Simulated scan of single mutants.
Amino acid sequence: MTNYGDEATVRSILTAKGDTWAVVGLSTNTARAAYGVAQVLQRHGKRIVPVHPKAETVLGEPGYRSLADIPFPVDVVDVFVNSELAGEVADQAVAVGAKAVWFQLGVVDEEAYARTTGAGVEMVMDRCPAIEFPRLG
């Protein structure tokens, strides 16, 4: 597979694209990867915004059912849904004006990548910020 998100893009999203990260698929289930990654994002000074059908408060932040329900700007949309649903989330991220989209490990949709980057929105796919932060130093 092609590398979707070069080092400059990874660095840009983690350090320069903004501090408000909508985490799609984040719930109160502490066993899920989304929960641990959200904790890492918070430790790196990011505000997390849980997006989940249950709209639960997670890690002290109120949740929303969809990206469109968030009443303030979102900088990065971090996607923890399966690849079949991820393209729709990427399209929603572009629609709400996100600066970047991040598909987690195992989440791949090449057509969504082409649409998102074609719309001028940076994107990383099949990577994890919890792994990339320490690697960047």
Rank of each mutant, 00 (worst) to 15 (best):
T2L: 12
G5I: 02
D6R: 15
T9E: 05
T9W: 04
V10D: 00
V10A: 02
R11E: 13
S12T: 15
S12G: 13
I13Y: 06
I13P: 00
L14I: 11
T15F: 10
G18A: 02
G18Y: 09
G18Q: 08
G18W: 06
V23T: 06
V23I: 04
V23F: 12
V24R: 07
V24N: 08
G25C: 05
L26F: 02
T28S: 12
T28N: 14
T28M: 12
N29T: 13
T30P: 01
T30N: 06
A31N: 14
A31G: 08
R32D: 07
R32T: 03
Y35C: 03
G36H: 13
V37G: 01
V37C: 01
Q39A: 14
V40Q: 10
L41Y: 01
Q42Y: 11
R43E: 13
K46G: 07
K46S: 05
K46R: 11
I48R: 03
I48P: 03
V49D: 08
V49F: 06
P50K: 11
H52M: 00
H52L: 03
H52D: 13
K54G: 05
T57Q: 10
V58P: 08
L59M: 12
L59N: 00
E61L: 05
E61Y: 08
G63E: 03
G63S: 07
Y64N: 03
R65S: 13
L67T: 09
L67E: 01
A68Q: 15
A68T: 02
A68L: 09
D69H: 12
D69K: 06
I70P: 06
I70S: 10
I70T: 11
F72A: 12
V74A: 06
D75E: 06
V76L: 11
V77G: 08
V77I: 07
D78Q: 04
D78K: 00
V81S: 07
S83W: 08
S83G: 08
S83V: 05
E84R: 15
G87K: 11
E88G: 13
A90M: 05
Q92P: 01
A93W: 10
A95S: 14
A98K: 07
A100M: 02
A100S: 12
W102T: 07
F103K: 00
Q104M: 05
V108N: 03
D109Y: 00
E110Y: 12
E110T: 14
E111Y: 09
E111L: 13
E111T: 12
Y113L: 15
R115I: 01
R115K: 15
T116H: 09
A119E: 11
A119P: 10
V121R: 04
M125C: 07
M125I: 07
R127W: 06
C128G: 06
C128I: 01
C128Y: 04
P129Y: 12
I131Y: 09
I131E: 02
E132F: 04
F133H: 05
F133K: 07
P134H: 14
P134C: 12
R135Y: 09
R135F: 05
L136W: 10
L136C: 01
L136G: 13
